[in-house]
Design a protein around this nucleic acid. Structure first.
Lengths: 334, 334
DNA sequence: TGGGGTTTCGCAAACGAATGCGTTTCACGT
DNA sequence: ACGTGAAACGCATTCGTTTGCGAAACCCCA
């Protein structure tokens, strides 16, 4: 059924080692014989068994990718960037979704180790508890690059965006336009990114004297539904901030939905800004002012860093991407 | 560095075969010894080498997934559905993007064969030329399931949505609301889905007596930019249809962008309906009437079909998913 | 024609885990 | 004390491929 190197050897009448050398372009086999072998090989439909090759060479040509959720366009675009780097060099991506569940994360890391991936690209689960397993990855000598988030105390390459700076731009922009009160729809509170963005928000608001009343910080749970609920709650208060900061792309959808349901208009009833710029931000009515991360770029950089580690044993390198401020029409001048 | 079954054997003082049996829960090992072995094994940080196991058993626990573009939310959600099926049974997904390029497709299929994946889930490239390689996949005894699209003449399981029925619902709805002229932003003309949806559109229009003038069928090239250009071209004509049918989700973005730039209002200036329902359709102003596919469901079904083939040697099975009509507010009554 | 050097190729040993089969151990029944 | 059967374990082989080493064949030039 499956044609192996041995079958070819038999067919051509040479030894398997010769076939191997011929097919791998190694010296020590005459051009004539090499031609004959390659010809017969693909005539027989031979395709090398990577499980055998991997066993022998210790190279599987597989990269493990750990992400929270592939259905989130942000991460999907990151993965796309990674593919652009790895496909040309013959590597492929083994995809693992964690769903922000540390158990899934642990389980996935284990299988990645088992599969003998040549490297791991990971956006660690936000609670950040799996330090043990990431160190085990490094102990096993498997190159590791974090993206979007990091695990404190794990010494390896990473690429993240400058969340504080992004937040700062948003808040300062609001302040410049006369806003002195702010509501926030936050990510899940335990999350790394969530903490960073929230702390950044609070810090800048304090600096600028922007007031955030109790109850104006609402847990959007990182997703569309959570943000919808949070936004409805916020809009039910009698006293509202003049501006709203939504901390990621998916939650922006929930907020818009809530406003639509409540027939609230941006920016007349409230101004809105948002972290991330997914497909929809520029199409909304009005288009949403935001800071844009560059997910594809992030994937590209992370992949390049990892590839460098794999091929040239590259040193650790920490990249911090800038978030680009995009002014649109969702903020009122006061 | 890497601890193997042999190291454990040495450490415990038994034979490798005993370790193997103990770790795999096979009979022939005393409970006492088994306990000792497992304990020492994970104390030494042992993790089985799947390249070796795979070679021996011919099972890699890897599924190959072939998709056009992971950054398209439609496909990302499909993949998510697949994961839900495969993760619980210990399989993982090897992701390959084709970018609708037959060469990439061919290349990817080859690597999937090399990697000895246990099954392949594929949304074939639309031009549909790679019949040869898919038959080779089947010849090698690798279970194959198509989703979203099929390759004619390849006899295997698939799951697609009923494009004709979906199109029919959209067009009939327009007709019911008094529309008698229609513009179409089409997918790339060579694509399977593109042909099916366009032919369906033409057929139903003919039935209902809806006129589509020359030039009202515009190639949106399946993507946002292409649709933007196409829409602008359409709106530059002096004579316009009263309604516009956009043939997929991404193109809807381009169309909306074009309308925003031209300050055209839906549905006052033109009515719009669309195939697919991504995140944004319900948030637009006005929300877009459409037929929704269920990508996650599609992934789920495809994965289940494949798993059945892998585990129980299941027979071929063809599933056709219904597209659900969702009435919103983007169509004017005339 | 012969010696030295270079190709060209075959042989066999790995790689890590799984397993059929053969061997040992041990407990129990007589 | 001996025999019996089952349970526990070891040995050696297997998977498909790569690779170091050695043997043979070839070439060039004296």
């Amino acid at each position: 059924m499956k044609v192996t190197i041995k079958d070819i050897a038999k067919a051509v009448g040479v030894n398997v080692s010769t076939v191997s050398r011929a097919l791998n372009g190694k010296p020590g086999v005459s051009d004539e014989l090499r031609g004959k072998i390659t010809q017969i090989a693909d005539q027989m439909g031979y395709s090398p068994d990577m499980t055998a090759t991997g066993l022998k060479k210790g190279k599987t040509k597989i990269i493990g990718v750990l992400i929270p959720d592939i259905a989130n366009p942000f991460f999907a675009q990151i993965v796309r960037g990674m593919e652009k780097v790895f496909r040309p060099v013959g590597y492929h991506l083994l995809l693992c979704s964690t769903d922000e569940d540390p158990e899934h994360e642990e389980e996935n890391l284990k299988t990645l180790l088992r599969q003998r991936v040549e490297g791991i690209l990971a956006a660690p689960v936000d609670s950040g508890g799996n330090k043990v397993f990431y160190t085990r990855v490094l102990e096993n000598g498997i190159p590791l690059v974090f993206f979007d988030r990091i695990v404190p105390d794990i010494e390896t390459s990473y690429v993240i965006t400058d969340n504080e700076a992004g937040i700062r731009e948003l808040v300062e922009y609001l302040h410049k336009n006369g806003h002195e009160s702010l509501g926030v729809i936050t990510l899940r509170s335990r999350s790394f990114t969530g903490r960073v963005r929230l702390n950044g928000t609070l810090k800048v608001c304090k600096e600028l004297g922007i007031t955030i009343k109790d109850g104006w910080i609402l847990d959007g749970k990182s997703g569309q539904e959570g943000a919808y609920e949070a936004a409805r709650r916020l809009f039910s208060f009698e006293e509202r901030p003049t501006a709203l900061l939504v901390q990621n792309n998916l939650m922006m959808l929930g907020v818009m939905k809530a406003m639509k349901d409540l027939r609230l208009k941006v920016p007349d009833d409230i101004s809105v800004v948002c972290f991330d710029d997914s497909y929809w931000n520029q199409i909304f009515d009005p288009p949403i002012t935001c800071v844009a991360q560059e997910p594809e770029q992030m994937g590209l950089v992370a992949a390049t860093l990892l590839l460098d580690k794999i091929m040239h044993n590259g040193k650790n390198s920490k990249t911090i991407l800038k978030a680009h401020f995009i002014e649109r029409e969702s903020v009122a001048k006061i």
